[in-house]
Design a protein around this nucleic acid. Structure first.
Length: 672
DNA sequence: CCCATCTTAAACAAAC
DNA sequence: TGTTTGTTTAAGATGG
């Protein structure tokens, strides 16, 4: 089936780390780097190298440059336009522009975020929040570096162009020249400004230790452009091109989500930014990406072409004039886009676009930082809950994550190109009961990340059984009809908004299969309840070792892959994600998820009473009921339905009442 | 290698 | 009749 390549992705997940494996099982993700995959152990390194080598087709790629790829994607488009414009202004054939272009492989940022090689789900499942966090951090650092370089290059480029321009200017009307120069200078300034800004932001967050070497520039204040992110699309207008709907849509989804989080909306706008990337799994993980980009990119590789010419048409913003060949195009360029007010104005607009993108990049970076800082908790955050989650969760963060982080960091830069959006859906089966077993209490996990799961098309790391149970326990009555369960799934997890037939079947299957789910005839029909005792019964077997598991995973996976996947995940959801087990976010959904006990029962926890056998569950009063239930199998629970305790369970989660809520009315009914 | 757990698929039957 | 709800069986993946 689809698997093949997908499975490879995970490939690296060699033996042990299979937790991840689940992913592979599914076949989804494979980022495809088949080759890389092959290399087991240090897969990453290999891939990293490969990437590098691959990249260098253009020239030598240093690790930093690789990083560029990731990061710069976001800016890539904008930059490209700028370059193109500049070059076009100078003269179509201008080599400088080309050179620079090739030299600076395109970067990205937005894309990076949106892009994914590994399925987010995989990522998520594979990595524990802390791990992800670590990766993120690492990524961030890399990004910074890249950014710096990028800016630098950008500046150089501009200078160069300026010079060229001056020379050329002799032949042109002074005014025009003036405009151009002005524009360039302006651009330059903006660049610097942005750079500075960006660095400051990052530094401010403490994640980065870079020194704003060049940033020191004078400019600082400049108020930013007035262009509203949302305007971008218009500015680009035709530019956006007929892009691929599919991808876009996908991406958009993620973006939208992001927007909810905060700023992000703007992201969605730039039409082509991300789409182009990836999709081409390169064998070595090498960034074909760059090249793959559709039109615009073309020029990079083919010197013969013109940056503003692609796919037989003029790429000048807003112009889609068809040109048979380069010659015709050049003619067109010289006539239609000569140095005049209009062109200059368009150039300015383009600059603004770039600026906006950069701003956006900065914002996103900042957000990322904040997220990382938040998740990392190590710095400041006192973890609220420390104990509960403890063991398993906490343990990894430091131990596991870090190590890899540093080491891997450099190498990984690239993400396996391939998956891009596709990955999202694949979602496969990453079942990974791990979490289940992992001990992380589903409830707390959920509580912490419910927002994430709600919006990100990421498969939750819980088994169907635990999810069903969670759904049921969240209701005051502790009972739900099948349909309500379905609704809960779709409401709580974006992932379950797809492939309904599949997971619904699984839900039904689980309900029937597990003794812990008891069907109770109700007036209105039948409802499902949970027999805690039964449920707990089966938990014991779980495992233990999260730490090891994780460790394996990490070692097994190539960092690059991780990174990529992580990013992917991030991108996709572009918002808050993963939580670190260690900390519970008080605010978050805690209220929603009433129970956690069971989870707590998980292995490690040193809860008061209990051992694994007798689930430790709740210590807190609140739960008492449920837990106690054990006395009587199924029905017991029902009795207790203390209605109020958890009170409004769902509400919080979902603002909108949604269909399913109807059931609230469910009368108590009785069961047994 | 064996066993247990999970996930998917799918066939069926009964109820709506 | 078509859909939903439940049950079962089977197979494959994972992991201990």
């Amino acid at each position: 089936m689809m698997v093949e390549s997908a499975s490879e992705t995970i490939r690296s997940a060699p033996s042990g780390q299979n937790g991840v494996g689940s992913l592979s099982g599914q076949g989804d993700g494979g980022s495809g780097t088949g080759t890389a995959g092959t290399a087991p152990a240090s897969g990453r390194d290999g891939s990293g190298r490969d990437a590098a080598s691959g990249a260098d087709s253009n020239g030598e790629m240093s690790s930093t440059e690789l990083l560029h790829f990731q990061q710069q994607q976001a800016l890539q488009v904008a930059r490209q336009f700028l370059l193109q414009q500049v070059s076009s202004l100078n003269s179509p054939g201008n080599n400088d522009s080309k050179q620079s272009a090739s030299a600076v492989q395109v970067p990205v940022s937005v894309a990076m975020m949106s892009q994914q090689m590994l399925t987010p789900q995989q990522m998520q499942q594979i990595l524990s929040p802390p791990q992800l966090q670590a990766l993120l951090q690492q990524q961030q650092a890399l990004m910074l570096q890249q950014l710096q370089e990028y800016y630098k290059k950008q500046q150089e480029q501009l200078h160069l162009q300026l010079l060229t321009q001056q020379q050329a200017g002799k032949q042109q009307p002074k005014e025009a020249l003036g405009n151009k120069q002005l524009a360039f200078q302006q651009q330059l300034l903006q660049m610097q400004q942005l750079q500075q800004q960006h660095l400051l932001n990052l530094q401010r967050q403490g994640l980065v230790s870079l020194q704003p070497s060049q940033a020191s520039g004078p400019l600082q204040a400049l108020p930013q452009a007035a262009v509203c992110p949302t305007d971008l699309p218009q500015l680009w207008k035709g530019e956006g091109a007929p892009g691929q709907p599919a991808e876009d849509s996908v991406r958009q989804e993620g973006l939208d989500l992001a927007s909810t989080a905060a700023t992000a909306t703007s992201f969605a706008s730039p039409p082509k930014v991300s789409p182009p990337l990836s999709h081409h799994p390169l064998p070595n993980g090498q960034p074909t990406v760059l090249t793959s980009r559709r039109d615009s990119s073309s020029h990079e590789e083919t010197p013969s072409s013109h940056p503003l010419y692609g796919h037989g048409e003029c790429k000048w913003p807003g112009c889609e004039t068809l040109c048979e060949d380069l010659g015709q195009f050049i003619k067109h360029l010289n006539t239609e886009h000569a140095l005049d007010d209009r062109s200059t104005a368009q150039c300015r607009v383009q600059m603004q676009v770039v600026q906006q993108l950069e701003i956006q990049l900065a914002k996103e970076s900042e957000r990322l930082q904040a997220m990382m800082a938040h998740l990392h908790m190590r710095p400041s955050e006192p973890k609220p809950f420390s104990q509960p989650v403890t063991i398993s969760a906490d343990s990894f963060p430091d131990g596991l994550v870090h190590p890899p982080t540093s080491a891997a960091a450099p190498v990984t830069p690239l993400r396996p190109p391939g998956l891009g959006s596709a990955s999202l859906h694949s979602g496969g089966p990453a079942r990974r009961r791990s979490s289940d077993k992992f001990c992380s209490p589903i409830s707390s996990e959920l509580a912490q990340n419910h927002e994430f799961y709600k919006n990100a098309d990421v498969r939750p790391p819980f088994t169907y059984a635990s999810l069903i149970r969670q759904a049921i326990l969240e209701t005051p009555d502790r009972q739900l009809t099948l349909n309500e369960i379905y609704n809960w799934f779709t409401r709580m997890f974006a992932y379950f908004r797809r492939n309904t037939a599949t997971w619904k079947n699984a839900v039904r299957h689980n309900l029937s299969l597990h003794k812990c789910f008891v069907r109770v005839e109700n007036v209105k029909g039948a409802v499902w309840t949970v027999d805690e005792r039964e449920y707990q019964k089966r938990r014991p077997p779980k495992m233990t070792g999260s730490p090891t598991l994780v460790k394996n995973m990490i070692s097994g996976l190539s960092y690059g892959a991780l990174n990529a996947s992580y990013q992917a995940a991030l991108a996709e959801s572009s918002f808050p994600l993963l939580s670190s087990p260690g900390m519970l976010n008080p605010g978050s959904a805690s209220s929603l998820l009433p129970l956690s006990q069971d989870d707590m029962g998980a292995p490690g926890e040193p809860l008061p009473s209990n051992g694994s056998s007798s689930p430790p569950r709740l210590s807190p009063p609140q739960y008492s009921h449920q837990v106690q239930v054990k006395e009587e199998p199924a029905e017991a629970e029902e009795d207790r339905r203390p209605g109020p305790p958890l009170g409004a369970p769902n509400p919080s989660t979902v603002g909108p009442p949604e269909d399913r809520d109807l059931e609230e009315d469910l009368p108590g009914e009785d069961m047994s």
